[in-house]
Write a protein that binds this DNA or RNA. Structure first.
Lengths: 207, 207, 207, 207
DNA sequence: AATGAATGAGGGTTCATTCAT
DNA sequence: GATGAATGAACCCTCATTCAT
């Protein structure tokens, strides 16, 4: 019953993915992964140097894609002179669209990366995402509320909170749902809710 | 070097609070707590019967207060005939106000209770909170969007998502901030954002 | 040096049996068992779920046999109308014979079950045995010494003492000897001694 | 609230005696003894070097008395030319009487010494007692059953078993009863039972 | 003389990782 | 390649003993 190396490696990846999704990085058990893959624990170490290594090999690609998306978005935000509110919301939409794209390709990996990577080297990825969104929202706020000066502390904090909340909310939707259409619908609704709220807030402040 | 008992107990509580906040209940290590408190692991057991007991003694009081708040709110939701949108938002405000009150007294404990209690007896508290808010939002949606029939699946999911997001967002604010006034401000802003969004959504749907 | 699984399991059982016999259930040390078995403590848990599980797997079978014997004997004692002295002595002989049978198969286990199981789920087995024998002897005494009334307190105590002594004596023989024939001989002698003594006591009392 | 040294030492002794009787040497807890004595654990070590030392100081005196009794009895057995059955039974009675005497003075200590000293230096005392009784019974058997030759192995074993059983039975009576008169009655009955049995056995063998 | 907080070695147990087969 | 038994460090916890006060 000889199994080709790639088949085995694949079955390990699959089993590991399921285990990481179920228990998160820290509580995932190598033994359970081996069992689910139909092999022995020791054999995993012929394919992966360590639990960390296995996790990395599964999650790294999507983390890289996400990082790349973030990099591009950040560049746009940094380099483009976008003062109009709609421009910024566009960028938010683009971030959202990118996440949706990644999700369609690798929903499990993305969920793990964003929600279940505590204790691994990717624990900070979510924060990077938040930082980016924060930057965008800060600019929106500055442009609209303090075009010539400094954003009041209150609004700075508010921007940060909204950024955190938006990203975490998307993560929660990913955590709680599997169906792509449902997720898209809920994220749309969420973004609508946030954008409406933000617009109203700005209107109110400008009044 | 002999230290007074209360000092030691206090330093254990402090160290434990930090450790629980850093690693959560399950991954918190008694040895690390002991190290941080400047004593040996065994000595902790002169002050607390077990890891569980230590956690409970730190978190129980605030959990009890929170449970009491939930109980009262649930009673109101169940018993009162409140069909007006404003009634429901009032209840949301009350929940918020209660949380703020608890927070002012014990921010770290509340964070641990809501975000880091996995594996302990308090693991379900956040979910209870979400369930309550979900119930309220569902009633608002039903009253406004489908007063005579059943809420569409789409709006059911939406209500659940919003409930989850609201509570988790408040938890995030608690996690990220220590100053009471800042927290109050941010939560107010968040609730305003959500309520505005919800109102607009309803208006849109009714149009 | 890789050893076959069964060999290791066997060596654990052997080491555990020796350790339990030497120190009893409570004071037996997993680390010592591991040392004696030539392995590490953690490895024991590949073969047995817990100290309890290890003890049970060693002792349970013989406990079940013993319990079954007790059950049958108790039924006979309860249901049969046996007023003759000889009937009762017959039952004692039967209990004895059953114990001998069990012993031939598993002397060490029986010793542990009866003498060294404090703290385990089997702690009460010896007392059950004593209670059964006590019941029988009480009936003999009542039938012979107070056929129409109540047995004097003195004889009640005496019956209890003799029951305890008989069972404990058998346990001692089991503890001190390994050879089946020797044990059978000694128990026979012991029962003869007790039965003779009891008969004489009764004759004396009736005179 | 200065307490005289002797009072404290006394209260420790009293508390320790109760604890040792309740849990035996091994499982007795220094902390519980301290609590029961109304002092702190550390203070015990001003009066006793160790748990062992405390146990020794309580049990040693009675162990010495017992040893002395044994020594004298052994001398009699060794030096006296006693061929008659009755002489030997007399010695058995004397051993019994000595034990009873010791018991009347220090029932708790004797019970502990004989039944609850596992793990201490006195664990073997009971065996010494058994050895002495064994010697006596062996001589009786030899004199009666093989006056000119060697006692058959069967009877040697039998003698040992009877010796063991007699002593352990007395220990059981001490363990189960507190009232001096009851104990005396039961031991008498036991000795009568044994002696009758032994006599009958000899008669039977000689027939 | 007394305290009682603190220690440290040991208890049972788990699990990622290694390695002889 | 693959096995899976074995390891070793870590987990929470207990308790006789010590020692600064």
């Amino acid at each position: 019953m000889q199994i080709l190396k790639d088949e085995v490696k694949n079955s390990i990846r699959q089993a590991a993915l399921a285990e990481f999704k179920k228990h998160g990085y820290l509580k995932a058990s190598i033994r359970q992964i081996a069992d689910a893959a139909g092999i022995t624990p020791g054999n995993i170490y012929r394919y992966f140097k360590s639990k960390d290594d296995l996790f990395d090999e599964l999650i790294q690609p999507i983390q890289e894609q996400l990082t790349e998306v973030l990099r591009v978005c950040k560049q746009e935000v940094d380099n483009t002179l976008c003062t109009a509110l709609s421009d910024h919301l566009l960028i938010l939409r683009r971030i959202d669209a990118s996440l949706m794209l990644l999700f369609k390709e690798s929903s499990t990996e993305l969920t793990i990366l964003l929600n279940l990577s505590e204790g691994s080297q990717f624990a900070s990825v979510k924060q990077d995402l938040i930082t980016l969104v924060h930057q965008i929202i800060s600019e929106v706020f500055t442009a609209e509320l303090a075009p010539t000066g400094t954003l009041p502390l209150r609004d700075q904090l508010s921007a940060r909170m909204i950024a955190t909340t938006m990203i975490e909310s998307i993560c929660l939707i990913l955590r709680d749902h599997e169906d792509g259409d449902t997720i898209k619908m809920l994220v749309d609704e969420l973004l609508y809710l946030f954008c409406t709220g933000i617009s109203e807030k700005i209107k109110l402040a400008q009044a």
